[in-house]
Structures are given as C-alpha cells and as structure tokens.
C-alpha cells in the first residue's frame, strides 16, 4: 500500500514541472504527427501483414522505439539532483526506494503514453484498424518494460558518477543494437541466420512481437505471453539493480 502511495507522491513531484512547461507539452503533441507525416508516405507500396495496412506493423514498432529511447537516457536527469542534494533529501525520508524510482519513471512514461494514443488515433484514418482493448494492454505492457529500462538507466547514472559521456556511451551502445536487433524497423525474418539467432537473445524482440500481435488484435497468443513475461522480467531486474545502486550511491 505504501508502495502505491509513495509512487504517487514521487510521480506527482516529478510531473509538476513538466505540466508547467507549455513548450514541452506542445512539442510532445506535435511529435507523433511529425513521425507519421515523415513515415506514412514511405509506406505507399509496402505490403502490410496479411493484407492489412502496413501501419498495423509499423506503429507498434514505433511506439516501442519511443519508449526504449526515452527511458534509456532518462537516468541522466537524476544527476543534477544527485549532486545538489535533493535526491539525498528524499532518500532520508521513509519513502519506499522502488516507489521513488517507479514514480520518476512514470513521469517519463506518461507523456509517451499520450503520444502513443495520439499516434494511434491519427493513424486510424490512414488505415490503422483499432483494437482498443489489446492495444491498451500493449501500452500497459510497454509501461512495465519502460519502468524497468528507466530504473536501469537511473542505476547507470548513479554508477557513472556524474560522467555524462560514460553514461551516454553505455546507454546508447546498449539501446541502438537492441533496437536494430529487435526488428523494430525491418522484419527480422529477412535476416541472415546468425542475425536471426542473435535477435532471439534480445529481449526487445519479444516485446516488439507481442506489441505487433496486440496491435493486430491478437490477445491470447504465445508472443503476447512471452512479451508480457519479458516486460515483467525487465521491470523486476531494473528495480532490483536500481535499488541496490541507490544503496551504494555514496558520492
């Protein structure tokens, strides 16, 4: 129970400044439209899965990419507070440590959720078929995954001790191959054998597959089950590593 109320406290603290910056909100709303404007024309003669619109295949991939890239680098925002002493102030309170992290991660994820919803709604007239329940489930699964990645990112920020270049080096050398190997932009089925095998060891692959299944309205399927499982595992791993890093944050 305290976990949930502490998460709310942490989330509300962090979201405050975001909600007050109008340019952030404006930019956030325009961004998904921009993606679609730059993307949809390219899809002209790309065939979609089973005769469906190619958007059914691309939009879920794009949403996964958005979540991955935002959460993987969000740890850096902690550095300022780590150095100033305001994070220490929170750590001296009885707040649950995982809740502090989850609240922060949700603050990063909330705008993404809104963007994803806009993306879905705007893509509908261009041929995206709506499956409200599975799609919402897909977004929830992504939030879970995002919490895990964000927590790992916070852990990395603590471990890299204010060294920004180290932080970006590590986070991007993890995120970029993960994205390419996850079949976010191009299907892995066309990959040479070794690459395909490598992609099966990438957790993102399962997430992308699950997301695509859900966006096609496939609720009860093996990819969905694997995706949810992977998201839960990443979340559990992220929180464990994050909490242990906080404990070691003896700067």
């Amino acid at each position: 129970m305290t976990f949930f109320s502490d998460t709310t406290i942490s989330f509300r603290r962090e979201i405050g400044p975001t909600l007050r910056s109008w340019y952030y909100i404006l930019f956030g709303l325009v961004q998904p439209l921009l993606y679609l404007a730059l993307f949809v024309p390219l899809l002209g003669n790309v065939p979609g899965p089973d005769g469906a619109s190619p958007l059914q295949w691309f939009v879920p991939g794009m949403v996964v990419m958005l979540v991955l890239f935002t959460t993987v680098s969000c740890g850096w925002s902690l550095t300022e507070e780590l150095m100033s002493g305001s994070f220490e102030r929170l750590l001296a309170t009885p707040m649950s440590r995982p809740a502090i992290m989850v609240g922060r991660a949700l603050k990063e994820l909330a705008p993404l959720l809104v963007q994803a919803l806009i993306l879905i709604i705007v893509a509908t007239p261009f041929g995206l078929v709506l499956h409200p329940l599975p799609m919402l489930l897909g977004l929830a699964m992504l939030m879970l995954f995002g919490v895990g990645v964000a927590s790992l990112s916070y852990a990395l920020a603590i471990a890299s001790k204010h060294d920004g270049s180290l932080f970006y080096l590590v986070s991007h050398s993890v995120a970029l191959p993960m994205m390419l190997l996850g079949g976010v932009l191009l299907p892995m089925t066309n990959a040479p054998g070794w690459l395909y095998v490598a992609s099966r060891f990438n957790p993102l692959t399962y997430l992308v597959e699950a997301e695509r299944a859900l966006f096609s309205g496939d609720l009860a399927s093996l990819p969905v089950l694997s995706g949810v499982l992977v998201a839960a595992l990443v979340a559990a791993l992220g929180l464990t590593v994050g909490v242990s890093q906080i404990r070691k944050a003896s700067l």
């Binding site: 100033s84 002493g85 309170t93």
Partner: peptide
Amino acid sequence: GQGTGSGPYHRVRDELVSQGRAQ
C-alpha cells in the same frame, strides 16, 4: 543536508507539500 535539498524546477510550496507527504 549540507547541499541544496530543493529541486531546481519544482516550486517552493510544491516541494514542501511533497516532503510532508513523503514524511
């Protein structure tokens, strides 16, 4: 602590209230 406890982008009253909630 010896450092600055308040977050730079947060408002003064908001920080006080969230601290109270955290406590």
